[in-house]
Design a protein around this nucleic acid. Sequence first.
DNA 1: TTGTACGCGTTATCAC
DNA 2: GTGATAACGCGTACAA
Lengths: 326, 326
Amino acid sequence: MSTIREVAKVANVSVATVSRVMNEKGYVSEKARVAVLQAIKQLDYRPNRVARSLFQKRSGLIGLIVPDITNPYFPQLARAVEDMAHKHGYQVILCNTDEQFQKEHEYIQSLEAMHVDGLIITTNYSNNPNYETIEVPIVALDRVLQGAIPTVTSNGYDGGKKAAQFLLDHGADELVVISGPSKLPTIKKRRDGFEEVAGKHLVASIESPFHFQGALDAANYLFDHYTCNGIFAANDVIAAATIQVAAERGIAIPEQLQVIGYDGIELGQMISPPLTTIAQPIYQMGELAAKLLIQRIEGKEIAAVHHELTVEVIERETTKRKDEQI
Amino acid sequence: MSTIREVAKVANVSVATVSRVMNEKGYVSEKARVAVLQAIKQLDYRPNRVARSLFQKRSGLIGLIVPDITNPYFPQLARAVEDMAHKHGYQVILCNTDEQFQKEHEYIQSLEAMHVDGLIITTNYSNNPNYETIEVPIVALDRVLQGAIPTVTSNGYDGGKKAAQFLLDHGADELVVISGPSKLPTIKKRRDGFEEVAGKHLVASIESPFHFQGALDAANYLFDHYTCNGIFAANDVIAAATIQVAAERGIAIPEQLQVIGYDGIELGQMISPPLTTIAQPIYQMGELAAKLLIQRIEGKEIAAVHHELTVEVIERETTKRKDEQI
DNA sequence: TTGTACGCGTTATCAC
DNA sequence: GTGATAACGCGTACAA
């Protein structure tokens, strides 16, 4: 890899001139310009981003911290973040915390030490007081962080209410919610909204991990202990596990049991029957988070507001048709 | 963020001493050591990785280039790579090429310019002659690159053969393979293996994109033009789409049609009926690729060999039981 | 219009 | 044992 000095030598100018040509700053004669351009091409010169970062104190890197990349929700989010970042000339460093506080902490330290320009965080631990001490700009995505940190989520409370209303409207009257870990505020809201509308029709409210294997256990527990005809799962993976277990037990969906998920990931279309779900605008959420972050990075003061995007029901085949319910 | 100079000042020593303490190199008196440690703690000093990279010419970063992170196969791979990298003190930069040559090229340039220590590449374009000119160590994962580049794949040829044999053994005698883009050598092998064993039982061989939507189209095309009772899909996503379309058309699986996928991603367990598939050792592949890369980075000369891991059939419910077939 | 020289934060090589 | 000091490659005052 050649350096700016070699280019200067080949072009018979000084490094300053090369730099000026590269960054299109300051005056440089046409003759020098073409000589430099020529030399750059000849040597396949690309500026060393490390040295540049050191000087400029910006790295062009955005850290994206997710709890579990094998949960398909996060790749879709990551994809949106990456697209937007790429569009603005940033690169994304993706880190997996495994839901472990320790790993999250390590990654944040590490990313700060490598001078990322900003951080998008989709994990949170209520007992973590550190976010306020982080010097780089942060945006929280899908989860809510303490402190004055801009946040992007979907309206889970409304989503929960819509799910309950939808099930009731379609003839289910014994409702269950399989929530995720309720220590996550965004998750708790989904359950709260659901329970409020479900009212006296609520049969049970249980918790499940987000990963498929754990959700299978939760679903088995549910069917062992309760009977119901309408289930709201806190995410689509849990819904898929629920459907899987129902199928094993010979419970007909949607005839005997209606299921509605949350997220709107592609998985919902892949399973049979295709999943009715409360869809978050995942791509927009990722884009918005990235956009907010980049604005902050580039100096615009943005309010530490909470952006709560609306969700909508996508009706597929794990719920009854309106005309079937009668 | 405080610098080494500030630490030196607080501890009343020179920066050299601080550096020695940090890196545990060279002699330093116990008294100086505790003073430095004390100062480091007090200032919450962490060395600037950018400056360190500039000097050492290593960044502690590994670039991982994938074609599509929303295809669940790649997150599982990424997860393995990341775990192994993390274990050795490296961080992973994940980049999405969208199967576009242009983006891949940009990312590689960019990653080189930021002095990543190595590259793991899971995309390839037969018309890309550039890999040989890249200066950092490279390992190819799941795809085969030209030039003397170590490669990790699964034995797709054997996988294809196993799939055909399995279908034949379970009573299917009109076989179809829905392959992925055949310009990818690893994909082509799966098809070749299948076709060889299928022999005169092969009814059709069609191609499909890897993403779900495209695979739906391919499956519809298939059912419009051919009849068959055994399908081998080049990956699990295509298999899921095929099953979806079959369900829509009222084709009973596995009674009328048996389906076998390839990959062994978690999705296979999530769909109904659960998917019989040729499982790659995904996690091991990711680990191995990362391990090979790190070995090369750290100076060990490793042969540019092709590591081809074995695959195995995971029998689930999209194929008939042996005892049912009669 | 162009070149010299310095600083960014770190590590390594010398003298002391 | 320890402290100056010279790199690493880049960008930019400032002088020419």
